[in-house]
Design a protein around this nucleic acid. Structure first.
Length: 314
DNA sequence: CGTGTTTGACCTGCGC
DNA sequence: GCGCAGGTCAAACACG
């Protein structure tokens, strides 16, 4: 993605309807009801009538985002919702990565370690913690690393649905926007989307502060992070618990690295199996989130809360 | 037993 | 060449 020489970069994020409040300060005068249809993406584009366009969007950026735009009755949206800003430091980092982004060489050689991330096709999304939702892919966490310059660690996930699947996901909390997470998808799934998630054995419960193991392990993280993070840094909460491990997958930002990234996004939502395809509209009509109720119920029952608020603080 | 997280060690790419 | 930072591995352990 072309990075403009702005002080700020516009990021369009999509989420549930509550996100509209972030942008409009509660004045919901824009219809954010998701109505994205990739089938028509080539013919639809965003035409911001809003002031934001003037300030943060250039024609080039708009052009790049075209595949994800949808115009609904004169209202504009990208993946369905609000707009947030990323400060200069992050822009600089991303710019450096993007400048180095190259087309992966085709070779039959399979290295033990994957190519550096900036050599891979990536899709970066931004999500908010208070928008509880998820994609239907099953992810297994395989690593967590403190990131220099960020008080929050980055979690690494791989697809657990298929052993040979190279799909990866990185989740890190935004150091500039509390409650916002940066999710980076790398590689593609080589299988159809699972009809349901795998067993939750050893997952949700152990992550929460009530778990003895969690407390002990995160005490280690606190010490570790204090050593590795910048001086101004702090852990994600008072237990060093990183909420991104909850695997909240609300697609809120898209960074276009290659021309066919919209296809990848499409696949993420629809799965590679045509029989399991679901339109974005269908997802938000209700069926898509039906499978998430179990997760939500788990949270509610474990912490005695009936709303979607997580039992952690930011 | 299968699936998941945690976490220290290890590997690799990149900047100097 | 060296050191750093990011990404991955794999053993240990937890949970259903």
């Amino acid at each position: 993605m072309m990075i403009m020489d702005w002080g700020l970069q516009a990021v369009v994020i999509g989420s549930s309807t509550s996100c509209s409040d972030h942008f409009h300060g509660g004045n919901n005068n824009i219809d954010f009801s998701p109505n994205l249809d990739f089938q028509e993406s080539d013919h639809q584009y965003l035409s911001f009538s809003h002031e934001v366009k003037k300030e943060f969007f250039s024609d080039e950026l708009e052009e790049l985002y075209k595949p994800f735009y949808h115009v609904d009755g004169g209202q504009n949206m990208l993946m369905g919702s609000s707009i947030s800003l990323i400060p200069k430091e992050i822009i600089k980092e991303e710019k450096r990565e993007e400048e180095q982004q190259v087309v992966a060489p085709t070779s039959t050689y399979v290295p033990k370690y994957k190519k550096r991330k900036n050599e891979q096709k990536r899709v970066v999304l931004q999500l908010k913690a208070d928008d509880l939702s998820s994609d239907k892919w099953a992810w297994r966490k395989y690593g967590q690393k403190p990131i220099k310059g960020s008080p929050y660690p980055r979690s690494y996930y791989r697809c657990s649905s298929s052993k040979g699947c190279l799909a990866r996901k990185q989740v890190e909390q935004s150091c500039t926007e509390t409650g916002t997470f940066i999710v980076t998808y790398t590689a593609e799934h080589n299988h159809s989307q699972p009809t349901r998630r795998n067993s939750l054995a050893g997952t949700i419960k152990s992550k929460f502060p009530n778990s003895k193991n969690t407390i002990n392990s995160h005490k280690k993280n606190i010490v570790k992070d204090e050593k590795n993070s910048s001086p101004h840094g702090s852990t994600s909460n008072n237990l060093g618990f990183s909420p991104e491990t909850l695997m909240i997958d609300e697609f809120q930002e898209i960074e276009i690295n290659q021309e066919n990234d919209h296809e990848e996004i499409k696949n993420m939502f629809e799965g590679s199996d045509e029989n399991e395809c679901v339109s974005i509209q269908e997802m938000f009509d209700g069926d898509f989130f039906a499978g998430l109720e179990d997760i939500h119920d788990g949270f509610s029952s474990s912490f005695g809360c009936n709303n979607s608020t997580f039992p952690f603080s930011f």
